[in-house]
Design a protein around this nucleic acid. Structure first.
Ligand SMILES: [Mn+2]
Ligand SMILES: [Mn+2]
Ligand SMILES: [Zn+2]
Ligand SMILES: [Zn+2]
Lengths: 158, 158
DNA sequence: TTGAAAGTGAAAACCATTTTCAATAACTGC
DNA sequence: GCAGTTATTGAAAATGGTTTTCACTTTCAA
């Protein structure tokens, strides 16, 4: 049986409603888009794609929805140094979009996800978070690890 | 013999001139300020302090100088998520301002430098940079490691 | 000392993001 | 369904950190 074209069937339905948020066309469309493909989209990227299919979803709503989703921990907001925020879906309930870190090319702004070494890194992070949390009485909730440099393409064209 | 009041005596003289940059009052003042004290200053922070002593150094020059210094690798530019860039002097030639990472309070925006665990972290980073560099043919030049959470003060006032 | 080029301040422009506000859509209880 | 409450919305205006412009000044090598 094909997926019915009615809203409120997504895995996020519960989380959304549970927090008192209403399910709207724009929010659903944005979550769909983020679930569907590549990450590191800017608000405008998202707006342009959404707006093509739903012409009455405005850029303001995109910003507001991304804020809500960030607050709920459902998307992560990144700054890769190009002057606009980038968003990507957080790890889903079934392990989709697994936790990863980033390589950022300072020349072309390409962003590479990597999960190599993630185990070592996560283990170190765990220890570090514990140690720092105790020493500074600091409650760590998230971390950012990014490597900057030159990507393969930009090294060729150097 | 007391320090003469002429410019061009700082440790950065060589690096500056070597790269074809001219030594100016504003640049010297900014480097002095950054060398002198606490990091994580915004361009406006710097401007206000500099401008008090040198009223004819403008905010534009502060931004331009910070760009130059970033380009030379003499200062690091950070985004801690409060909408303005923060700058701090990079590790000096004699090991001043040693390499460190950051704890960022998402409530009050306080930033804590830490060097605990730095050895473990740096060792991991070295391995990771090597592995990633080979696998992705990516030339890594720098990294950012930041932990976000609630500082001690903000946990009390929760 | 002098000239070419780098550097500068003030004001204007830029531009990603936020705010405002009247209109609309989503939910709740009937 | 229906109405009432309230969250949510789009368009336009405002915000605010940063960059650009441009005529003027300073640096520095010759
Ligand atoms: Mn990613
Ligand atoms: Mn620091
Ligand atoms: Zn590149
Ligand atoms: Zn705090």
């Amino acid at each position: 049986m094909p997926m019915r074209n009615c809203r409120g069937q997504g895995w996020w339905h519960g989380k959304f409603r549970g927090c008192g948020y209403r399910l709207t066309v724009g929010r659903e469309a944005i979550l769909d888009l983020l679930s569907g493909g590549k990450g590191h989209l800017s608000a405008e990227d998202i707006y342009l794609k959404i707006h093509a299919r739903y012409p009455n979803v405005g850029l303001t709503t995109v910003y507001r929805t991304l804020d809500v989703l960030s607050g709920l921990g459902m998307v992560h907001k990144f700054d890769f140094g190009d002057g606009r925020a980038r968003y990507e879906l957080a790890q889903g309930p079934k392990g989709e979009h697994p936790h990863h870190h980033h390589l950022v090319c300072t020349s072309c702004n390409r962003v590479i996800d990597y999960t190599d070494f993630i185990d070592d890194e996560v283990e170190l992070l765990r220890r570090t978070e514990k140690g720092l949390g105790e020493k500074y009485n600091f409650k760590i909730t998230s971390h950012v690890i990014q490597f900057y440099g030159l990507c393969a393409k930009c090294r060729e064209n150097k």
